[in-house]
Simulated scan of single mutants.
Amino acid sequence: MDWLQVVILAVVQGLTEFLPISSSAHLILVPILGGDPDQGLAFDVALHLGSLAAVLLYFRTDIGNMARSWTRSLTTRQLDADARLAWGVILGTIPVGLVGLLLQDFIETELRSPIWIAWGLIIFGLLLGWVDWRYRGQRSEHQINWKDVFWIGCAQALALFPGVSRSGITMTAGLMVGLNREGASRFSFLLSIPVTVLACLLKTYDLVRADTQVEWAPMALGVVLSAISAYLCIHYFLAFIKRIGMQPFVIYRVVLGVVLLWIFL
């Protein structure tokens, strides 16, 4: 990769990881549309590490409170709001882990085409828009219950399919079960932490097994730029989501999907 491609991919990953527009779709499409070589597994790991660093830094206070309450709940068997939220994040990760183990190879080889991405962007974008208009509630992420966790966790498993968007489908499910926009978004961001850790571990294992040569300078730049852009994305998304809603992202997804169908069909 040249340095311009490194910068573009890192910024794209940081901005799209937490917006409901599918980061995986954009990382697949950027080299295709730009005529560049695929960035490779090592660089994907670096970009995900940057996104992970951003969400850990942004939610550091919440994560600290959740960790303390979760640890205390192991001995007291009593759940306050933070402990319940922590357990929700842990349990909500199980479905995507199981589906990933079963279908990851099939998804990676059969469903990474622009056509599949386009349909995922359009269909699940329209679903997000409809749910945001029809089902949005008033509860925050601290008022989540086990039924909510089950449905959001199952929805997250769909994000393994390119074009669906992990943040998009979990926000959709969160709104559908009665969370408000900010609550659905914050729970989606927190839910990304164990998923991203698992993805990084899996890709690192594949990287070590493949004995791939790593170019450390582009990877370091990718981590930094991905972290900065992801942190800014989280901050401004949560600041403006109450006012702007989900509809601008729905429009973007549908337009991008239609353009991809027009180009590649």
Rank of each mutant, 00 (worst) to 15 (best):
A53T: 15
G92L: 01
V89Q: 01
T71P: 00
L49D: 01
L49R: 10
G88P: 10
D44A: 08
A54Q: 11
A83L: 00
R60P: 06
N65E: 13
L56A: 04
D82F: 04
V45A: 00
F59V: 02
D80P: 11
W87S: 06
G64C: 07
A83D: 10
A86Q: 04
H48G: 03
R60T: 14
L85M: 02
V89W: 01
T76S: 08
A67S: 14
A53E: 12
F43V: 02
A53D: 06
G50V: 10
G64P: 04
L52K: 07
A46N: 07
Q78F: 07
L49A: 15
S69C: 09
R60V: 14
R72I: 05
M66P: 10
V55P: 10
L47H: 03
L91H: 04
R72E: 13
A46F: 06
L49M: 13
G92K: 07
T61W: 10
R77G: 05
A86T: 10
L74G: 10
I63L: 13
L52Y: 00
L91P: 10
T71S: 14
V45E: 02
N65S: 11
F43Y: 06
L74I: 10
Q78K: 15
R60N: 14
R68V: 11
L47S: 06
D80T: 10
R84N: 14
S73E: 06
F59H: 05
T61F: 13
L74Y: 04
T76M: 01
R60D: 11
R60K: 12
F43H: 00
T76E: 01
T71C: 13
L85F: 03
V89L: 00
L91S: 08
R77S: 09
V55R: 00
I63R: 02
A83Y: 05
L79V: 09
D80I: 07
L57Y: 13
M66A: 05
D82M: 07
R60A: 12
L52R: 06
T61Y: 12
L79M: 11
M66C: 08
W70P: 05
M66G: 06
Y58N: 07
A54M: 09
A86L: 03
Q78T: 14
I90M: 03
R68K: 13
G88F: 01
L52W: 01
A81R: 15
W70F: 15
W87T: 12
V55F: 02
V45Y: 01
R72N: 13
L74R: 11
A46K: 05
A54G: 12
R60Y: 12
A67K: 08
R72P: 08
N65M: 12
L74H: 05
Y58M: 07
S69H: 07
W70E: 05
L52N: 09
F59G: 01
A81T: 14
A83K: 02
A53P: 11
H48V: 06
V45M: 02
D44I: 07
D44F: 01
G88K: 10
L47A: 00
I90F: 13
L49V: 15
T75L: 11
L49G: 13
H48K: 07
V55M: 01
W70Y: 14
A54T: 14
D80Q: 05
S69F: 07
